[in-house]
Simulated assay, not measured.
Amino acid sequence: MDLQHAGYGIKEPFFTGLDFFPDGRLVAVDNINRKCIILDDHLQSQGTSYTFNKNPFEVVCLSDSDLAVTMCEKSVFLLTVSSSNDIYLIIEIKISSNVFSACCMTPETMIVSTYDDSRPVRMLSLGGVETDFDHAVVPKKFKLWGSKITYVKSNNMLVLTDRFANKVHMYNTMTRMCREVTDENLKEPRGVCVHGNTVLVCSRLNNCIVHLTVDGNILGTYSVDLNGPYSICINSDETRLAVSGGETGNTKLLLYKMHKAYKIPYHR
Protein backbone atom coordinates (compact mmCIF):
# COMPACT_ATOMS: atom_id res chain seq x y z
CA MET A 1 0.00 0.00 0.00
CA ASP A 2 1.24 3.44 -1.00
CA LEU A 3 0.28 5.45 2.08
CA GLN A 4 0.64 8.84 0.43
CA HIS A 5 -2.51 8.14 -1.59
CA ALA A 6 -4.28 5.73 0.76
CA GLY A 7 -6.71 8.34 2.07
CA TYR A 8 -6.36 7.52 5.77
CA GLY A 9 -5.86 11.11 6.85
CA ILE A 10 -5.38 14.71 5.83
CA LYS A 11 -1.59 14.27 5.90
CA GLU A 12 0.52 11.41 4.55
CA PRO A 13 0.24 8.59 7.13
CA PHE A 14 3.21 7.25 9.09
CA PHE A 15 2.44 3.89 10.69
CA THR A 16 4.67 3.85 13.77
CA GLY A 17 2.91 0.85 15.32
CA LEU A 18 1.73 -2.47 13.87
CA ASP A 19 0.40 -5.67 15.43
CA PHE A 20 -1.80 -8.63 14.53
CA PHE A 21 -4.82 -9.86 16.46
CA PRO A 22 -4.85 -13.66 16.98
CA ASP A 23 -7.44 -14.01 14.18
CA GLY A 24 -5.14 -12.27 11.68
CA ARG A 25 -6.58 -8.75 11.58
CA LEU A 26 -3.84 -6.14 11.34
CA VAL A 27 -3.87 -3.09 13.61
CA ALA A 28 -1.98 0.03 12.51
CA VAL A 29 -1.30 3.24 14.43
CA ASP A 30 -0.81 6.41 12.39
CA ASN A 31 1.32 8.88 14.36
CA ILE A 32 0.82 11.77 11.93
CA ASN A 33 -2.98 11.68 11.65
CA ARG A 34 -3.48 10.35 15.21
CA LYS A 35 -5.48 7.32 14.11
CA CYS A 36 -5.81 3.62 14.86
CA ILE A 37 -7.21 1.45 12.05
CA ILE A 38 -8.01 -2.22 11.40
CA LEU A 39 -6.91 -3.80 8.09
CA ASP A 40 -7.77 -7.10 6.41
CA ASP A 41 -5.56 -9.46 4.38
CA HIS A 42 -5.84 -7.11 1.38
CA LEU A 43 -4.86 -4.06 3.49
CA GLN A 44 -8.38 -2.68 3.23
CA SER A 45 -9.66 -0.63 6.16
CA GLN A 46 -12.35 -2.31 8.26
CA GLY A 47 -14.97 -0.77 10.55
CA THR A 48 -14.57 2.66 12.12
CA SER A 49 -11.09 3.94 12.96
CA TYR A 50 -10.30 5.66 16.25
CA THR A 51 -8.95 9.22 16.36
CA PHE A 52 -6.73 10.15 19.32
CA ASN A 53 -6.47 13.58 20.93
CA LYS A 54 -2.65 13.36 20.86
CA ASN A 55 0.06 11.51 18.97
CA PRO A 56 0.27 7.72 19.32
CA PHE A 57 3.51 5.74 19.07
CA GLU A 58 3.10 1.97 19.36
CA VAL A 59 0.33 -0.63 19.50
CA VAL A 60 0.24 -4.09 21.09
CA CYS A 61 -2.67 -6.54 20.91
CA LEU A 62 -3.56 -7.87 24.37
CA SER A 63 -6.35 -10.36 23.57
CA ASP A 64 -8.82 -11.28 20.84
CA SER A 65 -10.33 -7.79 20.95
CA ASP A 66 -8.31 -5.51 23.28
CA LEU A 67 -5.20 -3.49 22.51
CA ALA A 68 -2.91 -0.92 24.11
CA VAL A 69 -1.43 2.16 22.44
CA THR A 70 1.48 4.13 23.88
CA MET A 71 1.03 7.88 23.62
CA CYS A 72 2.96 11.10 24.03
CA GLU A 73 2.39 13.06 27.26
CA LYS A 74 3.00 10.03 29.53
CA SER A 75 -0.04 7.91 28.86
CA VAL A 76 -1.24 4.57 27.49
CA PHE A 77 -4.68 4.09 25.92
CA LEU A 78 -6.51 0.78 26.36
CA LEU A 79 -8.99 0.19 23.53
CA THR A 80 -11.36 -2.54 22.42
CA VAL A 81 -12.49 -3.58 18.95
CA SER A 82 -16.05 -4.73 18.28
CA SER A 83 -17.09 -7.65 16.04
CA SER A 84 -17.76 -5.07 13.30
CA ASN A 85 -14.21 -3.65 13.72
CA ASP A 86 -15.24 -0.41 15.37
CA ILE A 87 -12.67 0.83 17.90
CA TYR A 88 -13.62 2.25 21.30
CA LEU A 89 -11.63 3.68 24.19
CA ILE A 90 -11.76 1.72 27.48
CA ILE A 91 -9.50 3.91 29.62
CA GLU A 92 -6.47 6.20 29.48
CA ILE A 93 -3.70 5.21 31.90
CA LYS A 94 -1.57 8.13 33.06
CA ILE A 95 1.95 7.12 34.10
CA SER A 96 5.06 8.84 35.43
CA SER A 97 7.35 8.14 32.44
CA ASN A 98 7.47 9.12 28.78
CA VAL A 99 6.67 5.80 27.10
CA PHE A 100 7.42 4.86 23.52
CA SER A 101 7.36 1.16 22.59
CA ALA A 102 5.49 -1.70 24.26
CA CYS A 103 5.14 -5.49 24.26
CA CYS A 104 3.35 -8.14 26.31
CA MET A 105 5.22 -9.88 29.14
CA THR A 106 2.21 -11.68 30.67
CA PRO A 107 -1.54 -11.46 29.95
CA GLU A 108 -1.77 -8.77 32.65
CA THR A 109 1.56 -6.95 32.26
CA MET A 110 3.23 -4.97 29.51
CA ILE A 111 6.87 -3.97 29.19
CA VAL A 112 7.35 -0.41 27.94
CA SER A 113 10.43 1.42 26.73
CA THR A 114 10.85 5.05 27.80
CA TYR A 115 12.63 8.14 26.56
CA ASP A 116 14.35 10.90 28.56
CA ASP A 117 14.13 8.64 31.63
CA SER A 118 16.85 7.01 33.74
CA ARG A 119 14.68 3.86 33.74
CA PRO A 120 14.84 2.89 30.04
CA VAL A 121 12.51 -0.09 30.48
CA ARG A 122 9.58 -0.42 32.88
CA MET A 123 6.63 -2.74 33.56
CA LEU A 124 3.01 -1.59 33.50
CA SER A 125 -0.02 -3.63 34.54
CA LEU A 126 -3.35 -3.26 32.76
CA GLY A 127 -4.60 -1.81 36.03
CA GLY A 128 -2.07 1.02 35.77
CA VAL A 129 0.47 -0.20 38.35
CA GLU A 130 4.06 0.78 37.45
CA THR A 131 7.03 -1.34 38.52
CA ASP A 132 10.73 -1.42 37.70
CA PHE A 133 13.16 -4.24 37.04
CA ASP A 134 15.32 -4.85 40.11
CA HIS A 135 18.47 -4.65 37.97
CA ALA A 136 19.50 -2.15 35.29
CA VAL A 137 18.40 -3.56 31.93
CA VAL A 138 20.44 -1.06 29.89
CA PRO A 139 22.51 1.62 31.67
CA LYS A 140 21.44 4.56 29.51
CA LYS A 141 18.65 6.95 28.62
CA PHE A 142 17.03 6.66 25.23
CA LYS A 143 16.02 9.62 23.12
CA LEU A 144 12.58 9.90 21.55
CA TRP A 145 12.36 7.46 18.60
CA GLY A 146 15.50 5.80 19.98
CA SER A 147 14.38 2.29 20.97
CA LYS A 148 11.66 -0.26 20.23
CA ILE A 149 11.23 -3.49 22.17
CA THR A 150 9.89 -7.03 22.09
CA TYR A 151 9.91 -9.97 24.49
CA VAL A 152 10.73 -13.60 23.63
CA LYS A 153 8.72 -15.42 26.29
CA SER A 154 10.22 -18.87 25.66
CA ASN A 155 13.70 -17.53 26.44
CA ASN A 156 12.81 -14.77 28.94
CA MET A 157 14.65 -12.45 26.56
CA LEU A 158 13.88 -8.75 26.35
CA VAL A 159 15.15 -7.25 23.08
CA LEU A 160 15.72 -3.50 22.67
CA THR A 161 16.86 -1.82 19.50
CA ASP A 162 19.25 1.09 20.01
CA ARG A 163 18.81 3.15 16.88
CA PHE A 164 21.34 5.91 17.40
CA ALA A 165 24.08 3.53 18.65
CA ASN A 166 23.51 0.96 15.86
CA LYS A 167 23.01 -1.81 18.43
CA VAL A 168 20.53 -4.39 19.64
CA HIS A 169 20.45 -5.14 23.38
CA MET A 170 19.36 -8.61 24.53
CA TYR A 171 18.54 -8.82 28.24
CA ASN A 172 17.65 -12.09 29.96
CA THR A 173 15.10 -11.21 32.64
CA MET A 174 15.93 -14.38 34.62
CA THR A 175 19.74 -14.37 34.59
CA ARG A 176 20.02 -10.54 34.31
CA MET A 177 22.70 -10.97 31.66
CA CYS A 178 22.76 -8.45 28.80
CA ARG A 179 24.38 -8.90 25.39
CA GLU A 180 25.04 -6.11 22.89
CA VAL A 181 24.80 -7.03 19.23
CA THR A 182 26.53 -4.94 16.57
CA ASP A 183 26.92 -5.81 12.91
CA GLU A 184 27.32 -4.02 9.58
CA ASN A 185 23.77 -5.13 8.75
CA LEU A 186 22.35 -3.33 11.79
CA LYS A 187 22.35 0.31 10.78
CA GLU A 188 19.82 2.38 12.73
CA PRO A 189 17.81 -0.65 13.93
CA ARG A 190 14.22 0.32 14.65
CA GLY A 191 11.19 -2.01 14.81
CA VAL A 192 11.55 -5.53 16.17
CA CYS A 193 9.25 -8.54 16.57
CA VAL A 194 9.38 -12.16 17.75
CA HIS A 195 9.65 -14.91 15.14
CA GLY A 196 9.46 -18.27 16.95
CA ASN A 197 12.48 -18.31 19.28
CA THR A 198 14.24 -15.65 17.20
CA VAL A 199 13.68 -11.98 16.36
CA LEU A 200 13.34 -9.85 13.23
CA VAL A 201 14.79 -6.33 13.28
CA CYS A 202 14.25 -3.44 10.85
CA SER A 203 17.57 -2.00 9.66
CA ARG A 204 16.73 1.51 8.45
CA LEU A 205 19.86 2.44 6.51
CA ASN A 206 20.23 -0.99 4.87
CA ASN A 207 16.55 -1.24 3.85
CA CYS A 208 16.34 -4.77 5.14
CA ILE A 209 15.08 -7.07 7.89
CA VAL A 210 17.79 -8.75 9.98
CA HIS A 211 17.02 -12.20 11.44
CA LEU A 212 18.72 -12.77 14.83
CA THR A 213 18.89 -15.57 17.38
CA VAL A 214 18.49 -14.64 21.06
CA ASP A 215 22.23 -15.29 21.37
CA GLY A 216 22.87 -12.46 18.96
CA ASN A 217 23.82 -14.55 15.92
CA ILE A 218 22.62 -13.36 12.50
CA LEU A 219 20.67 -16.00 10.58
CA GLY A 220 20.07 -13.89 7.49
CA THR A 221 18.96 -10.57 6.02
CA TYR A 222 15.93 -9.91 3.82
CA SER A 223 15.62 -6.85 1.59
CA VAL A 224 12.31 -4.96 1.65
CA ASP A 225 10.75 -2.78 -1.01
CA LEU A 226 10.87 0.52 0.88
CA ASN A 227 13.42 3.00 2.11
CA GLY A 228 13.81 3.03 5.87
CA PRO A 229 11.71 0.15 7.29
CA TYR A 230 10.31 1.27 10.64
CA SER A 231 7.66 -1.06 12.15
CA ILE A 232 7.32 -4.82 11.84
CA CYS A 233 5.01 -7.54 13.14
CA ILE A 234 4.18 -11.17 12.39
CA ASN A 235 0.88 -12.99 12.89
CA SER A 236 0.36 -15.81 15.39
CA ASP A 237 0.78 -18.70 12.93
CA GLU A 238 3.77 -16.98 11.28
CA THR A 239 2.27 -16.91 7.79
CA ARG A 240 2.04 -13.11 7.38
CA LEU A 241 4.60 -10.40 7.99
CA ALA A 242 3.75 -6.67 7.91
CA VAL A 243 6.35 -3.90 7.51
CA SER A 244 5.82 -0.14 7.36
CA GLY A 245 8.15 2.77 6.77
CA GLY A 246 9.59 4.88 4.00
CA GLU A 247 10.51 8.51 3.62
CA THR A 248 8.16 11.49 3.41
CA GLY A 249 6.39 11.38 0.07
CA ASN A 250 6.90 7.63 -0.27
CA THR A 251 5.63 5.89 2.86
CA LYS A 252 4.38 2.33 2.46
CA LEU A 253 2.79 -0.59 4.24
CA LEU A 254 3.89 -3.98 2.92
CA LEU A 255 2.32 -7.37 3.59
CA TYR A 256 4.45 -10.47 3.03
CA LYS A 257 3.54 -14.13 2.93
CA MET A 258 5.93 -16.30 4.92
CA HIS A 259 7.14 -19.43 3.16
CA LYS A 260 6.45 -22.29 5.60
CA ALA A 261 9.38 -24.43 4.53
CA TYR A 262 12.10 -21.79 4.80
CA LYS A 263 10.41 -18.90 6.62
CA ILE A 264 11.71 -16.47 4.01
CA PRO A 265 9.25 -13.66 3.17
CA TYR A 266 8.35 -12.88 -0.41
CA HIS A 267 6.47 -9.78 -1.48
CA ARG A 268 2.76 -10.12 -2.12
Rank of each mutant, 00 (worst) to 15 (best):
E73Q: 12
E92M: 05
I87Y: 02
E130W: 04
I234Q: 11
L254N: 10
I264F: 10
D215I: 01
D41V: 05
A136E: 10
T213G: 04
T248C: 08
F57P: 00
T131Q: 05
R179V: 15
M258H: 09
S147N: 06
F21R: 10
V137Y: 01
T173C: 01
A261C: 08
L67T: 02
N207F: 03
I209N: 00
Q46T: 03
R119D: 08
S113G: 14
I10Q: 15
Y230S: 14
T248Y: 09
L254Y: 00
D66A: 08
A6M: 05
P107N: 11
N250R: 04
S97G: 08
L39R: 02
P265W: 03
M105S: 09
Y230E: 11
G146L: 03
L253G: 05
K263D: 08
K167T: 10
T80H: 13
C72G: 01
S63I: 05
S236L: 12
T48C: 03
F133M: 03
L26Y: 09
T109M: 05
S49W: 04
V194G: 03
V192I: 11
Y88V: 10
N156E: 00
L67S: 06
L79N: 06
A165Y: 12
Y115M: 08
R190K: 15
F14G: 03
Q44K: 15
V159C: 12
V194Y: 00
